[in-house]
Design a protein around this nucleic acid. Structure first.
Lengths: 153, 153
DNA sequence: CTTAAATCATACCGTTTTGGTAAGGATTGT
DNA sequence: ACAATCCTTACCAAAACGGTATGATTTAAG
């Protein structure tokens, strides 16, 4: 189980997309500028997101990316698994089980499974639709309190 | 946030220790044999566990390790943090926050915090005392069903 | 007193992962 | 035609991972 910047970048990008869902395709460049993500790196992430069906791509000038399905049907877990692979315990996996010889009869393995399940629970119960709404509110609050900051998203 | 074999080995070792808490010090060698952990690697982990106060060391021949405090007061989180460092989100950390400029006003950061909190919840609510009890039961069941396997722990 | 068993400490090392960059090809609106 | 954009592949430095190697130190037992 690992969470790296891939997930972070990917989530920021997807939230960004969700906030502009009715403005047509949004370019990778635009998002990388706005979110402070290295452009070429983000392009790679979008490849993975597209292959997972989470975004649709429009090629050519004025092209960009759109959400692959309604924002309410895209969870953070979808994004994480598209970018980092299946979220499962990295410990006590198949090979290890062969070594320790305990199989299912291992108290330790159960802990890792419960920990992983807890993360999955959080990630799969959070949609980018709700995050986009939250972000909009946060941005409005920020620009009210500190107008100089303006819209960051 | 990361969980590697360090945590796995460390937890197995601590459960092993907890199962033999009244047999005097248990050597690293004995545990590495029983749990199928590379001996020299386990030694390193014990150094970290000792520095964290989770085990006590008895040097010299017939030496070994003992639990640093009652098994009911040692959580899996203690072990994980002793071996892998503080369990916090690896994404949206200090440096990143400076780049994105959102500070607390970030919907994404909240997800990672909730995910981390979920893992912490599982790990800190599980003591090696309970795991040791579970393991004993599992071993007894296994040896009843399949006597040829014998005690593995 | 010697020796074997054990912890302690540090350095090293091959492989994989991470977080990118580089270079160019393919597609399409203007 | 041209510029913007996605697509593909290759490459790369640095760090982390999982482990070995070597040896020093301490101590019980013979």
């Amino acid at each position: 189980m690992r969470l790296t910047v891939k997930s972070e970048y990917g989530l920021l990008a997807m939230i960004d997309l969700a906030c502009r869902v009715d403005e047509g395709p949004v370019s990778s460049r635009e998002i990388s500028d706005r979110q402070g993500i290295p452009g070429k790196y983000l392009e790679q992430l979008f490849v993975a997101l597209r292959r997972a069906g989470l975004v649709g791509a429009v090629r050519g000038a004025r092209g960009g990316f759109t959400l692959g399905r309604p924002a309410a049907e895209i969870t953070v877990l979808d994004i994480v698994e598209a970018l980092e692979g299946s979220l499962r315990p990295t410990v006590c996996d198949g090979e290890r089980a062969a070594v320790c010889g305990r199989g299912d009869a291992c108290a330790a393995a159960d802990v890792w499974e419960r920990a992983t399940a807890a993360v999955r629970g959080v990630l799969e119960s959070t949609t980018i639709s709700s995050l986009a709404r939250t972000q909009v509110v946060l941005d409005e609050t920020a620009s009210t309190i500190e107008p100089s900051a303006g819209r960051q998203d």
